[in-house]
Design a protein around this nucleic acid. Structure first.
Lengths: 320, 320
DNA sequence: CTGTTGCGGGACAACGTTGTCGAAAGCAGG
DNA sequence: CCTGCTTTCGACAACGTTGTCCCGCAACAG
């Protein structure tokens, strides 16, 4: 910018004015400055700008893994909203590791993001306190973060309950549940929904039909259940990765899965699912965040997004 | 930092020394500073740091769409490499729009990224010239960028040739090609590979068996071919989206698709594919970029990554 | 006692911006 | 001619860091 000013024979401030489209610059002078900018290939330094003013026009997003279609959908939606607000999205994958999540968040804070959207990997977010106090808003997405901050989550329990109830309607009385580790909030909620569905139907919950743990162990869990004395006649899976793991075993029994996935409709039979809306989740969280960034002071909001049952065949089969 | 210095009763520079682990600070003083940092919740401002020093410890990545599994795989790999180099990844989706790509790249440059990885949407990248001249390295990934910069691409033609040859080996003589718009580099290359395979087998290329255009029109194109006088007995699809579009038509004929995808193995028959390695692409491009950032001066490199044919059933069927 | 060395620590400038203030010049009205 | 207002523009400080230079002090050799 200094060079541009020298080249155009004006003061620094005048260049700044032209770049920012402020008034108070003669048209002729402005043109001279603009041509100097063009000639020198000058580009305003956003980080210096953020240093001087308060805003950096950037927001941070911490997800579990960009390569997971659910989170990449979230990411894309947040990016689009940020674009609309003239903001850049910084995003990173925590890989479900609380330490890495913390590291990412702190990195974003070091870059003075205007706000944060976090899919919590850990339970404790006290480390965020200084930032929140300093006025950097944060929104927790997909799972609650423990702090009294804005939160956008899906109706995990309700969705699971609806999915299981759907199976019960076709006459099943022994519906198994295979889900992710119970320490993960969404997994626990969905298990809660499963139990609620059974309770509402007046059925007892048989603990031998419930398995939780890493998705890669889901296949083995199913095999155990099917070879037991009283095997299930239907299955509810707690997330997309578990659903895939189960499908790969080759075992086909009536089932409904949590999370929609590409090609679910092309399998035979089509896989009935309880679908979340990743884009909606990302969009809602981002809109909420930008409202905060723009100064909305109200109390923390807790939004719950609905799920949608999509029947495709696998969930509409009666017991043998 | 000023506050920390005041609170610890030392000078600014001493705090800076402690934060950066420089020597020349008494252990007692250092401890006093550290406790002040803790007490005040101080966090070094990375943008001010980048302003003073040259490096910002960040790199930019422009892809077509994070929500596309291929690109999210690339993104994840680049992120992992960047993490290893202590660098933050800024990434954005161009949506195949050259204007948006340019805008993103310039935004990244405004933030003074140390380097760029670009999946080119447009053909002209002259706008990058000032940055390259200023010493910001750039690597083009998946497609060449026109400039004389480092490039990492897949062996599109070779992969397509291998896929088509595979079909020919099973006795097909009328293999159709349905691909993305010919204006896209990868699509054009794959079509070239298709033609090469036919030529090598001594077969004429029947233009009525070749269709290019947006994936959503692939289904219609296939329908036209199948109802024509001399329909194809096998099909090669030019990318993952086209493959999906074709599968959704419900038409099943012997086929091989470019790009692997989740669940390809669970369809009946399993879909044989020519697989690219998105993680490998991202990793290679990122490693190359960081070598440049660290000062490697050599001439522009052009890396070509191999593809892998994965037979799953759909490509191993003879003509009726 | 003097000169030298090393260590701990501080003052200051600079990075590239922008907000604040004020100066100079032009113009209208008296 | 003076006064008051507007337009145009520049000087300067400040944002949060870090590199450079310098100073004071203790230890040590001569």
């Amino acid at each position: 910018m200094k060079d541009v000013a020298a080249s155009a024979g004006v003061a620094l401030k005048t260049v700044s004015r032209v770049v920012n489209g402020e008034r108070g610059v003669n048209a002729v002078t402005a043109e001279r400055v603009r041509s100097a900018i063009e000639r020198l290939g000058y580009r305003r330094d956003e980080s210096a700008r953020g240093l001087r003013g308060g805003r950096t026009s950037s927001v941070g997003l911490v997800i579990e893994d960009v390569a997971d279609p659910f989170y990449s959908g979230v990411s894309r939606a947040v990016e689009d909203v940020a674009l609309g607000y003239g903001s850049l999205l910084l995003s990173g994958s925590s890989g479900e590791d609380p330490r890495r999540e913390r590291e990412l968040v702190l990195t974003f804070c070091s870059r003075r993001v205007d706000g944060l959207i976090i899919v919590p990997a850990g339970a404790d977010h006290e480390y965020l306190r200084p930032e929140l106090d300093a006025g950097t808003p944060a929104v927790f997405a997909d799972r609650p973060g423990g702090l009294d901050a804005d939160t956008v989550i899906c109706d995990n329990a309700g969705g699971a309950c609806a999915g299981v109830t759907h199976l019960l309607r076709y006459g099943h009385r022994r519906v198994a549940f295979i889900g992710d580790s119970a320490s993960i909030f969404t997994a626990a909620e969905r298990l809660r929904g499963y139990r609620r569905a059974l309770a509402e139907a007046g059925l007892p919950a048989d603990e031998s039909l419930i398995a939780t743990g890493p998705p890669e162990r889901a296949g083995a869990a199913l095999a155990r259940m099917l070879t037991a004395q009283a095997p299930p006649t239907a299955l509810f899976t707690g997330n997309g990765r578990v659903t895939l793991a189960v499908l790969r075993t080759g075992q086909r029994l009536p089932m409904v899965g949590f999370d929609d996935f590409e090609l679910a409709d092309l399998l035979v039979p089509g896989v009935s699912v309880v679908a979340q809306d990743p884009a909606g989740l990302g969009r809602t969280a981002a809109e909420l965040l930008f409202r905060r960034i723009q100064g909305d002071p109200g109390p923390a909001e807790h939004v719950e997004l609905p799920t949608r049952l999509i029947p495709r065949g696998s969930g509409e089969l009666p017991p043998p």
